[in-house]
């Protein structure tokens, strides 16, 4: 009766489901502790302790937060557009978490190894903006509405810069498959695209901050201006979905940064040559450490920089980042034709 399980197609589906479940649970755990770590890290930067009450050094704070968010009343404003209001956080969350499926954490550690991995992530991150715009519209609140408008404009303009900055990587690797991109980097003596693609890296880094609505580009949720921006009217679990979506998007961007510019799970060959015993450490450790570093970098920036103004943000996107990324494509393309690499 269970013979159909041995069919290769069925087997691969089961495998994908199991992988997805593992990935989602690991990702959600990371989201919970990313919030804790953010509060701790920023707390210490600001001469305070951060959460200290729940468990030793507040280690159980995410659990308490989660319980609280689960049991909070799910308030829907009377004049809200109910259907859209229900779906907005789901879209935001699903778009973020499905991007995780194509990220190679280690040689064979991925849910889907598709040839257009990079394109898939870009597509998903722009889909996430729909959730924000819809939330802003459906809440029928002016603050949320302004937040949604800001977000749509921001995501639109920074997406172009981000996509263009990744073109350099695509040219160098000759592929859109994230696994092949990582492997292409390992063939270089210094083991990462961060050095030849320094311009692209800069553009990507800035655009990633804007894509994920993080400081200094956190205009859609600017607390001091728009109170909470697009999710001002959300509460309870729907709010948690937005929150989780934002953190997963952050993890996705950090992973993308690691995979496309910093050699993914590999170590630069010259380091391995100098310290061969480092080769014994499984590659996933390097991947995760790199991702943690970039997440920390996000927090670091948040504690340091003031917030940009809406028009300044647009000016940076269109007048600085897009020309820079075009220049990067030109340089990379020229070098490629001249067979420098």
């Amino acid at each position: 009766m269970l013979a159909f399980i041995n069919e290769p197609a069925v087997l691969s589906i089961i495998l994908a489901v199991v992988k997805s479940i593992i990935l989602v649970s690991v990702a959600m755990f990371h989201v919970a502790y990313a919030t804790y770590f953010e509060r701790k890290a920023i707390g210490h930067m600001q001469v305070r302790m951060g959460p200290m009450r729940v468990g030793p050094h507040g280690i159980l704070q995410p659990v308490a937060d989660m319980i609280k968010l689960f049991f909070k009343e799910d308030i829907i404003p009377e004049k809200a557009d109910r259907t859209v209001f229900y779906f907005a956080p789901v879209i935001s969350f699903v778009a973020a978490i499905s991007s995780l499926s194509v990220i190679p954490f280690y040689k064979d550690w991925y849910v889907a190894n598709i040839n257009i991995g990079l394109l898939f992530i870009l597509a998903m991150s722009s889909l996430g903006a729909y959730g924000i715009v819809m939330a802003g519209w459906a809440s029928n609140s002016k603050y949320a509405f302004l937040g949604g408008l800001r977000s749509s404009a921001q995501v639109l303009s920074y997406e172009i810069a981000m996509g263009l900055s990744l073109v350099g990587v695509m040219i160098m690797a000759g592929s859109l498959n994230l696994r092949e991109i990582v492997e292409a980097q390992n063939k270089l003596p210094y083991g990462m695209f961060a050095i030849p693609q320094i311009l692209g890296l800069f553009v990507f880094l800035v655009a990633a901050f804007a894509e994920t609505n993080r400081a200094p580009f956190d205009l859609p949720e600017a607390e001091s201006e728009l109170v909470a921006g697009y999710f001002a009217e959300y509460s309870g679990f729907r709010f948690a979905l937005f929150y989780a979506g934002e953190y997963i998007a952050m993890i996705v961007m950090a992973s993308l940064l690691t995979a496309c510019y910093f050699g993914g799970w590999t170590l630069p060959p010259f380091i391995l040559k100098a310290l061969p015993w480092l080769g014994l450490v499984p590659g996933v450790v390097w991947f995760v450490l790199k991702v943690y570093f970039f997440i920390f970098f996000y927090y670091w920036i948040r504690a340091t920089l003031p917030r940009y103004r809406y028009d300044q943000l647009m000016a940076i996107g269109w007048k600085v980042l897009i020309p820079l990324s075009l220049l990067n494509i030109f340089i990379t393309g020229t070098l490629r034709i001249l067979k420098v690499f």
Binding site: I42, V47, A222, S224, T304, L305, P306
Partner: peptide, 13 residues
């Protein structure tokens, strides 16, 4: 003032 403009670290210092 700094917090309003987004520089949140000055606040507690």
């Amino acid at each position: 003032h700094a917090l309003d403009i987004g520089a949140m670290t000055v606040f507690l210092y």
